[in-house]
Design a protein around this nucleic acid. Structure first.
Lengths: 213, 213
DNA sequence: TAAAGTTAATGAAAATTTTCATAAAATGAA
DNA sequence: TTCATTTTATGAAAATTTTCATTAACTTTA
């Protein structure tokens, strides 16, 4: 199998979203054009992305919605549920704990960690907050592979090192510090203010110069 | 001026982060190699990105930290503060309201909107929650250009339409629905579960196939 | 001062990603 | 059936992005 470009992976998830939504609305078939249109992409690109994984479209007809959905879910590893640990139950962390979107999409946050004695032992939803001293013990016992990191940037590196040693393979990092590990570990850095900052670039420069954006 | 690739803009913000941090640690000069190293990039790429905006490095020495910082801040439109509206004060929305990172980076969330009568009139930090009926009035009176959207996906399109009509130019969208508008409007879609989903692709496929990732 | 080592700038080359063009298969209408 | 239309699959072309190679400027060391 050919190497899959990272940009393709990001798009596949979006395709899956759209396909699921269209399935709900009763669409039995979807064309590359429809999928592309919903995301402002070129239909050729959609076909090429899908073709990495085999040919499951029918010429003249498009893609069978359900089959496409199942295939995409399998490709993305989303045909099963994932157990997730959350580290850092501050403002953002506790909002993420309560965020229904994760469960809806197959991710069960089954444990949470914090350093603050006031928080340890408390319950948020179905999850009891544990001491960060227990990270290694619980992660390994529960065999958790994914962690969400929402702690201050100063602690990010140290804690992520510990997580990976304890058995975590992928981290979704909300701490505003760029984390990076090499294969086979995966980190996705999500820096909320960074997003706002990329908006201002365009607001500031649009129209003024001939930046064709 | 040449067209600036979108990937470059995303990197510039990260460079700025690093440069500011290094300045705090007392570094008066930074080389492209150092900047690149911190983000796992090629130093040539850093130089090329910076060169879009003129030449402010010194051969044999690197870039003057403070000057580079100031220039990047100016390029990104971050040499001034931005006033931001937040729409949707649910779990995520109220966490974002309390999130200190925005203010730290120059963004002042000065108003918040919700539909729920229980929430309207309440105060979170310095911000009073207003009825969504007042979106147009307040956005326009306060001349706000940026909005953060943290509402259910069903309402996303309708509300974003209203925001843009009211004068908003850029939206940071946390609703799990891909929003898209054409120039001069800008939307940044931030779908939290989508990030987890892109992690699972790699966790699922790494090692199994020769996807060189 | 001279020589060796760094490092930015820049145009060229390579790699990657996207778009295009064509062929083949399926559909629907006449 | 036949023909026009739609749409996927796929290899080629184009565009974009990244990496490389060279040159020139500056720094450090002897």
């Amino acid at each position: 199998m050919k190497r899959i470009p990272e940009v393709t992976v990001e798009r596949l998830i979006k395709y899956l979203r759209f396909v699921e939504e269209m399935e709900k609305e009763g669409m039995r078939n979807l064309t590359a054009k429809q999928i592309a249109g919903s995301l402002g992409l070129n239909p050729h690109l959609v076909r090429k992305d899908l073709a990495y994984f085999g040919q499951f479209g029918k010429r003249g007809k498009g893609y069978q919605t359900e089959k496409l959905k199942e295939t995409l879910r399998k490709i993305m590893g989303l045909d099963k549920r994932w157990r997730v640990a959350l580290v850092g139950v501050g403002n953002l962390g506790s909002a993420l704990l309560r965020y229904p979107g994760f469960k809806e999409r197959g991710f069960d946050v089954i444990c949470a960690f914090d350093t603050s004695p006031q928080k340890i032992g408390k319950q948020i939803g179905a999850v009891k907050i544990e001491s960060m001293d227990k990270i290694e013990e619980i992660i390994s016992k529960e065999n958790i592979k994914i962690a969400i990191l929402s702690i201050p940037k100063e602690a990010a590196e140290e804690v992520s090192d510990r997580l990976l040693k304890a058995g975590i393979m992928g981290i979704l990092n909300f701490a505003p510090r760029h984390l990076q590990y090499s294969y086979p570990f995966r980190v996705l850095n999500v820096d909320l203010s960074l997003y706002l900052e990329s908006l201002t670039f365009y607001l500031e420069n649009d129209g003024k110069k001939n930046l064709s954006m």
